[in-house]
Design a protein around this nucleic acid. Structure first.
Ligand SMILES: [Zn+2]
Ligand SMILES: [Zn+2]
Ligand SMILES: [Zn+2]
Ligand SMILES: [Zn+2]
Lengths: 137, 137
DNA sequence: ATCTTTTTCTCCAGCTACTATAGCTATTAT
DNA sequence: ATAATAGCTATAGTAGCTGGAGAAAAAGAT
C-alpha cells in the first residue's frame, strides 16, 4: 500500500497530476484510508508508469486511455495499438516538419541584422514582410 | 476603412482572433461605426500582418507585444529586438531537440511490433518499460 | 420602403494538460 | 500531547485561440 506521495516519488508524476489523472478516468478512483486519504496498490504504480512513459512520448490523454483499454483485453489483436503508435509518430514528424522551416527563417532573421537602430532592424523588417522569407511556413 | 471581415480576409486572421488581439492589447481598440461596428485603417492591416507573421514564426503574444513597442521608437538601438529573435530561435531549436528522440523511439516502437495479440504487442510492452528505450526523453 | 441575407456585436464557455493556491484534516514522529 | 509533514477538496489560472447564443446592423434585392 502506497500513499499518493510515495506513488509520486516512485513514478515521477506530481501529486496534483495523479489526482488529475484520476479525475480524467485514466487512473481508477483509489481506495481510501479511514481518514479519506488515497492508498495505492503496486499495480497502480505500473499503470501510472505506463501513463507517464506514454505522456513523455507525447501521446495525448485520449490516446493513452485507448491504449489502456486495449491492454485490458490480452486476447484481441494488437492492430489498434500499433495504429495509435504510428499515428503518434506521424504527429511528431509533423511537428518537426513544421518547426524546421521556422528554424531556418529565424536563423536568417537573427543572423542578418547588422543595423543599430530600430528603423533599420532586419528582424523587424522581416517580421513585417513575409516576402523576405525563403520558405512558406 | 475596412470592416473586421475585410481585415480578416486581407490578413488571414480569423475574426474572433482579431477581437482577441484587441482584448490582449496587441491591436488598439478600433474606431467604431455609428452602429458600434469596428472600422480599421490601412495601418491596422499592416500591424495585424506583422502580428500574424510573428505568430506563424512561433513568437508568443508577449514577445510580439515587446516587438511592437520597440517598433514605436525608431531611434533606439535594435539590440532588444535582435535578442527576442535569438531567444525565439533557441526556443524552436529546443523544441526540435526534444522531438527528435521521441521520433526515434516511436519509429522503433511502431516498426518493431510483429505480434498479433495485445499480450505480445511490442508497442504496449515498450510503453510499459522505459528500459527498452534507446534514448532518454 | 420593405424584405431577406449576411455580417457584426457582446458575453461566455470550452479546448489541453496540467499547476497553484486556500483552508482544512490526517498521519507520523518525538 | 504536540509539532511537523502530508493529504484532502474545490476553484482558478496558464496560452492562444475557437465556437455558440441571441441580438443588432448593414447590404442587396425587389
Ligand atoms: Zn536588429
Ligand atoms: Zn515568413
Ligand atoms: Zn502490436
Ligand atoms: Zn522511454
Amino acid at each position: 500500500m502506497l500513499t499518493i506521495g510515495e506513488l509520486s516519488r516512485a513514478t515521477g508524476v506530481k501529486i496534483p497530476t495523479i489526482r488529475y489523472y484520476e479525475q480524467m478516468g485514466l487512473m481508477a478512483a483509489a481506495e481510501r484510508s479511514g481518514g479519506n486519504q488515497r492508498r495505492y496498490e503496486p499495480q497502480d504504480r505500473d499503470r501510472l508508469s505506463f501513463i507517464k512513459h506514454a505522456r513523455d512520448l507525447g501521446f495525448t490523454i485520449e490516446a493513452i486511455r485507448e491504449l489502456l483499454e486495449l491492454s485490458a483485453h490480452p486476447e484481441r489483436p494488437c492492430a489498434d495499438a500499433d495504429t495509435i503508435a504510428i499515428r503518434q509518430l506521424q504527429i511528431v514528424r509533423n511537428k518537426i516538419a513544421k518547426l524546421r522551416p521556422l528554424e531556418k527563417e529565424l536563423e536568417r532573421i537573427a543572423a542578418c541584422c547588422h543595423g543599430d537602430s530600430i528603423r533599420d532592424c532586419y528582424v523587424l523588417q522581416s517580421l513585417a514582410n513575409h516576402d523576405m522569407c525563403v520558405s512558406e511556413h
